Simulated assay, not measured.
Amino acid sequence: MGQTVAAHDLCSQLPPFRKRHHLQTGVGHYGVFSGRKWETQVYPVVRNFIVSNN
């Protein structure tokens, strides 16, 4: 937890609208990028962010 915030701090030149923080409950480091919660809860957030910033 907190990796997104740390990454945002490192990318200080990005405008705020280019940053998005998402904290997914009920998953660990591996689970956030695999399995059912990735497919149904996390990936849609990531996909929508990418689409909205193209």
Rank of each mutant, 00 (worst) to 15 (best):
G2N: 04
S52W: 00
P44Y: 03
P15F: 00
H21G: 14
T40A: 08
N54Y: 01
N48Q: 15
F17D: 15
S52Q: 12
K37H: 05
L14A: 12
P44M: 03
F49Q: 05
S12T: 07
P16L: 09
F17H: 15
R47T: 01
P15G: 14
G26E: 08
K37V: 07
V5H: 06
C11K: 07
K37F: 00
N53F: 00
V51P: 01
R36E: 13
V46F: 11
F49M: 05
H22M: 07
W38P: 01
V5C: 00
L23F: 10
H8S: 05
C11W: 10
M1T: 13
V27I: 10
G28I: 06
G35I: 05
G35Y: 04
K19D: 00
L14G: 06
L23D: 14
R18E: 07
A6V: 09
R36S: 11
V42H: 04
V45N: 03
R18A: 15
R36I: 06
G2F: 04
Y30F: 13
Q13G: 08
P15R: 15
N54Q: 04
V5Y: 07
F17L: 11
A7C: 05
G35N: 06
R36M: 07
V27M: 09
H29K: 03
R20E: 03
P16A: 15
N54F: 08
G31K: 06
P44C: 05
H29A: 04
K19H: 05
C11Q: 11
P44W: 02
M1C: 09
G26Y: 09
L10C: 08
R20N: 04
N53S: 14
K37D: 08
W38E: 02
N53L: 06
R47S: 03
K19N: 08
G2Q: 04
F49V: 01
G28E: 07
Q13A: 15
R36V: 08
M1L: 11
F33G: 13
G2M: 04
Q24H: 04
V42R: 03
Q3P: 02
T40H: 09
